[in-house]
Design a protein around this nucleic acid. Structure first.
Lengths: 205, 205
DNA sequence: TATTTTCTGTTGCAATTGCAACATTTTTTA
DNA sequence: TAAAAAATGTTGCAATTGCAACAGAAAATA
């Protein structure tokens, strides 16, 4: 999908869509009840975070290019605020869901196209979410790892896969303790189920 | 959201949207690569299932009224087929994503409205998914339970909550062993954090 | 290039969890 | 309403996991 056309259109159209730049460390948005904001990350990297009761920083999600996020996608409560922080320089499209939904009824072609683009972005997001849920549903670290490796393998049409992020991030994604995950990876290697060279994994079954 | 208008419209319109009835036990759809089907459950109850390597029936998701599902939402592989089975009598709307996406560009008001409705359904689905992911991300059964109870409590604006499904289903939803969950619920009661009467839970903090 | 930060890898230990196997109660179905 | 099925509740035990605390390698930054 190409969002650049969309951005072009926006420049010459009516609804309240903002394009903004955020420097690393700055707050792109906060989620608070009933604002229904949608953001599209055109460029850069950001994190959805929350500070828990003990004051620990809790990274809930990481966003890369083409990610779509915002409070419309979350059940937000007043007493646990969520922030989106830029971790690299970000270009972001910001608008309100209601602006899209309501004005669409006027049958303006631009909005139709925006909704259609939106649909595609959200759909991609949904697929990733379903994948993650399926992995998180597994009961053991071993099953989580294998399930994740299988998905990567099928996407790549190969038994040789390259982890798209660091092992530390992988542990976050699988939502398990990193050292326990490392131990389990070692077990998988010892059991002859996989082999590993850096961030390259080979499935041996 | 009211989907009945949408269904009415469909009767008098052009795209290939089917409305079908399924009896309990029958297969509503199977997910196979690259068909991009979308289904909306107007009435009834269904389950997304898979048979794992050992032949165990694996319930991946449960669908109720207004649920939206279909292979567009999943990364599907040829060798692990997914089925949607009706568990009660179901009324289902079936169509292909591409039929919606492509014809929308012709700027027909019905399709615009369908896409807009679709957007809303998918958005609801995304919110549920994010909620579930947040819960599944917790490392212990206790945290999972509390996190889930909190969400229910905030939705209900009350410390008194009613579980929307059985404890057995709750264990499935949290993706933990049922007996271990029961034990942890007892611990929460013993520690004076919650009280419980049947499917009614009271948060004591 | 030197220094700081992040990432990888490892281990012991205690706590949590899944599993299996029950009895009992409630709900559904014939 | 009787019988079957599903849900609840409980427990011991073994396996898995998280946690803490390291050391060394690699990457990022000044």
């Amino acid at each position: 999908m190409d969002i650049s056309n969309l951005v072009q259109d926006i420049a010459s159209n009516c609804i309240k869509v903002q394009k903004k730049t955020f420097l690393p460390g700055s707050v792109i948005t906060t989620y608070m009840e009933k604002r229904k904001q949608i953001c599209i990350l055109l460029e850069g990297r950001a994190e959805l975070i929350r500070y828990d009761l003990k004051g620990n920083k809790d990274i809930i999600e990481r966003f890369n290019k083409n990610a779509i996020f915002g409070e419309v996608f979350h059940h937000v409560n007043t007493n646990n605020e969520l922030f989106v922080l830029a971790t690299k320089k970000c270009e972001v499209l910001l608008f309100l869901y209601d602006d899209i939904r309501v004005k669409c009824r006027r049958n303006c072609s631009f909005h139709t196209s925006l909704v259609s683009n939106l649909l595609e972005l959200i759909l991609n997001n949904t697929i990733s979410q379903n994948t993650r849920i399926e992995i998180l549903s597994k009961r053991s670290i071993r099953e989580k790892l294998l399930s994740y490796f299988n998905i990567l393998s099928k996407k790549a049409y190969s038994k040789n896969i390259i982890l798209p992020f660091s092992l530390t991030s992988l542990a976050d994604y699988l939502s398990v303790d990193r050292s326990a995950m490392m131990r389990e990876i070692k077990n998988l290697i010892d059991d002859g189920i996989i082999s590993k060279d850096g961030n390259k994994i080979k499935l041996l079954y």
